[in-house]
Amino acid sequence: MAGAMLVDSHCHLDYLAESGDLDGVVARARNAGVGTLLTISTKLSTWEGVHAIARRYPEVWCSVGVHPHEAEQEGQETPERLIALAQAPEVVGIGETGLDFYYEHSPRKAQEASFRAHIAASRETGLPLIVHARDADDETVRVLREEYAAGAFPGVIHCFTAGPGLAEAALEIGFAISLAGIVTFKSAESLRETVKRVPLERLLVETDAPYLAPVPFRGKTNEPAFVPHTAAKLAELKEVSPETLAAATTANFFRLFGKAEAPAGAALGA
């Protein structure tokens, strides 16, 4: 994709670092045309490691937040700690947070309380909310609508796998929709039909690495260098060229994550 930079808007480089080849992971991403990466916080107890990675590589930014799986042990009841940590220059988003009723590793009440604290932090800082939603579409829509009525905040539904109801509600409040490798899976036809109805100017692309490697790497450890495969499927679904898709999703990322700085010389679309 000459001249068309991609962004991995959601990956977990701290998990990939466990292989001992983080330099290689970042270099392979760069060589694949992935010029910016957002590495995501899942626990405040490990946030310093996430932050250190963002400080180490100029093309990497990070978030601060607590995954719904961790809400019982590390969930935030108030936004103050999130707001304080978000002052670091490398922090460009709040999350990931949200609701996961598939695994229910944490009680639903704890998940929702932490979700609302993250929303308050997003509203206060102006940084976009990074939302995880699994088997909790209706509840996620309810919380987002209730909180948005109390005050606007930007955000994205990451690794979108839900139905059209959550997509429509997210788009209604101005959120972006981010797609991971699942959109390339043979079994994901209903997801692809929903994606076709999402405006190009609201789409982001991600890996969620080390999880959910796209076809043709399904079943292998995912990494940011695989973003172009998911982007190619999205370009096909949106009936645009890979270059157009890359330019649009990259521009969308920097518009949403306004604190992140694009690499010098990067050509951003409208």
Rank of each mutant, 00 (worst) to 15 (best):
L99Y: 11
R28K: 13
V156K: 04
R202M: 02
G174H: 08
G181Q: 12
V215S: 02
L37Y: 10
D100T: 06
T42N: 05
P79A: 11
H229W: 14
A260Q: 03
A133V: 13
V195Y: 02
G181N: 11
L179E: 08
I182P: 01
A17Q: 13
F254D: 02
T140D: 13
D135K: 14
A231L: 14
T207Y: 08
V198S: 10
L191Q: 04
L16E: 09
F153C: 10
A188Y: 09
A32K: 06
G24A: 08
K233Y: 01
G155F: 09
F254N: 07
I53M: 03
K109N: 11
P154K: 15
G35F: 00
P79V: 00
G219Y: 05
L99Q: 08
G155M: 07
E124Q: 14
A2I: 02
L203I: 15
A133R: 00
A84N: 02
L144N: 03
E96W: 04
T221C: 10
A32Q: 12
L13Q: 07
G24D: 12
R55Q: 15
E223C: 07
R218G: 01
L127I: 04
K186G: 01
A110T: 09
R28Q: 13
T78N: 14
K196D: 02
L204A: 08
L127P: 00
P58V: 00
L13E: 03
P154R: 15
A170N: 09
R108E: 10
T230W: 14
I94H: 05
E201F: 02
D208Q: 13
Y211Q: 13
G95I: 01
S63Y: 11
V26L: 04
R55D: 15
L127Y: 08
D135F: 04
L166N: 01
Y148G: 00
P214K: 12
V25F: 12
A71K: 12
H158S: 11
R134K: 10
E206H: 06
A113S: 13
T249H: 08
T36Y: 00
S178G: 15
A133H: 04
S187Q: 14
E90F: 00
L6R: 14
R28N: 02
L237A: 08
V227E: 09
A113G: 09
I130Y: 03
G24H: 10
R197C: 02
V26T: 08
A247S: 15
H51R: 15
L22W: 10
A270F: 06
L37R: 00
R116Q: 06
S241Y: 11
L13T: 09
A235R: 10
H158P: 06
K238Y: 09
G24Y: 13
A209Y: 03
E206P: 14
I173Q: 12
D208W: 09
H10L: 04
R55F: 00
